[in-house]
Amino acid sequence: MKVIFLKDVKGKGKKGEIKNVADGYANNFLFKQGLAIEATPANLKALE
């Protein structure tokens, strides 16, 4: 799953980066902790 990092995550990505991560990692950790959002077309456009 492609995500946009909202904060730096050690060993995974930095704020503003768009990366592929495992679905479970994104859903169970990144999204719940507010560290990333899904890289949907709307979210990508808002990032610009």
Rank of each mutant, 00 (worst) to 15 (best):
M1Y: 08
M1E: 02
M1G: 02
M1A: 05
M1T: 14
M1W: 03
M1D: 02
M1Q: 07
K2C: 15
K2P: 06
K2G: 06
K2T: 13
K2H: 09
K2S: 10
K2M: 15
K2D: 10
K2A: 11
V3N: 00
V3S: 01
V3R: 00
V3G: 01
V3C: 03
V3T: 00
V3K: 09
V3W: 00
V3F: 00
I4Y: 06
I4Q: 02
I4R: 02
I4E: 01
F5G: 00
F5T: 02
F5A: 00
F5D: 01
F5M: 04
F5W: 01
F5P: 00
F5K: 00
L6A: 01
L6Y: 00
L6P: 01
L6T: 05
L6H: 01
K7I: 11
K7H: 11
K7E: 12
K7F: 12
K7C: 14
K7N: 08
D8S: 09
D8P: 04
D8E: 07
D8H: 07
D8C: 06
D8L: 02
D8G: 05
D8R: 05
D8A: 05
D8I: 00
D8M: 01
D8F: 06
V9M: 04
V9K: 00
V9I: 09
V9F: 04
V9A: 03
V9T: 03
K10P: 15
K10I: 12
K10W: 13
K10E: 14
G11P: 03
G11F: 06
G11W: 06
G11C: 10
G11V: 01
G11I: 02
G11N: 09
G11Q: 04
G11H: 07
K12F: 15
K12Y: 15
K12W: 15
K12V: 15
K12T: 13
K12N: 10
K12H: 15
K12G: 13
G13K: 00
G13V: 06
G13I: 04
G13N: 02
G13D: 02
G13A: 12
K14I: 08
K14N: 10
K14P: 01
K14V: 09
K14C: 14
K14F: 11
K14W: 08
K14S: 08
K15V: 10
K15E: 07
K15M: 11
K15W: 04
G16Y: 07
G16P: 01
G16V: 00
G16H: 08
G16T: 02
G16C: 10
G16S: 04
G16W: 09
E17S: 05
E17D: 12
E17Q: 11
E17Y: 02
E17P: 00
I18C: 11
I18S: 03
I18T: 06
I18H: 03
I18L: 06
I18R: 01
I18V: 13
K19H: 11
K19M: 11
K19F: 06
K19S: 08
K19D: 03
K19E: 04
N20R: 12
N20W: 15
N20Y: 15
N20Q: 13
N20S: 12
N20V: 15
N20K: 13
N20C: 15
N20F: 15
V21C: 07
V21E: 02
V21H: 02
A22F: 09
A22N: 14
A22E: 15
A22G: 11
A22V: 08
A22R: 11
A22H: 13
A22C: 12
D23V: 15
D23R: 14
D23Q: 14
D23I: 15
D23M: 15
D23C: 14
D23N: 14
D23L: 15
G24C: 13
G24S: 15
G24R: 11
G24V: 13
G24E: 15
G24F: 12
G24L: 11
Y25M: 06
Y25D: 07
Y25H: 04
Y25I: 08
Y25W: 09
A26F: 14
A26T: 04
A26H: 03
A26P: 02
A26N: 05
A26Y: 11
N27Q: 14
N27F: 14
N27S: 10
N27W: 14
N27G: 07
N27A: 12
N27H: 14
N27K: 15
N28H: 10
N28Q: 10
N28E: 15
F29W: 11
F29K: 07
F29I: 14
L30F: 03
L30K: 00
L30R: 00
L30Y: 04
F31G: 05
F31W: 03
F31H: 04
F31I: 14
F31S: 05
F31E: 06
K32I: 13
K32T: 13
K32H: 09
K32D: 12
Q33A: 11
Q33T: 11
Q33H: 15
Q33V: 09
G34L: 06
G34S: 06
G34R: 06
G34M: 09
G34I: 02
G34F: 06
G34Q: 07
G34E: 07
G34A: 07
L35Q: 03
L35D: 02
L35T: 03
L35R: 01
L35P: 00
L35Y: 11
L35W: 09
A36H: 00
A36Q: 00
A36G: 05
A36N: 00
I37W: 05
I37G: 01
I37V: 13
I37S: 03
I37L: 11
I37P: 00
I37C: 08
I37E: 04
I37Y: 04
E38M: 10
E38K: 11
E38N: 04
E38Y: 04
E38I: 11
E38G: 04
A39I: 04
A39S: 04
A39M: 07
A39H: 05
A39N: 02
A39Y: 11
A39W: 11
T40A: 03
T40L: 05
T40C: 07
T40H: 05
T40R: 03
T40S: 10
P41R: 08
P41C: 12
P41I: 13
P41Q: 11
A42S: 11
A42V: 09
A42K: 11
A42D: 13
A42R: 09
N43A: 11
N43W: 05
N43K: 05
N43I: 08
N43Y: 06
N43D: 05
N43T: 07
L44Y: 01
L44W: 03
L44N: 04
L44H: 04
L44G: 05
L44I: 14
K45V: 09
K45Q: 10
K45C: 10
K45M: 13
K45T: 10
K45R: 13
K45L: 13
K45Y: 08
A46K: 13
A46G: 11
A46E: 12
A46L: 14
L47H: 10
L47T: 07
L47S: 07
L47W: 14
E48S: 11
E48F: 12
E48I: 13
E48C: 14
E48W: 09
E48V: 14
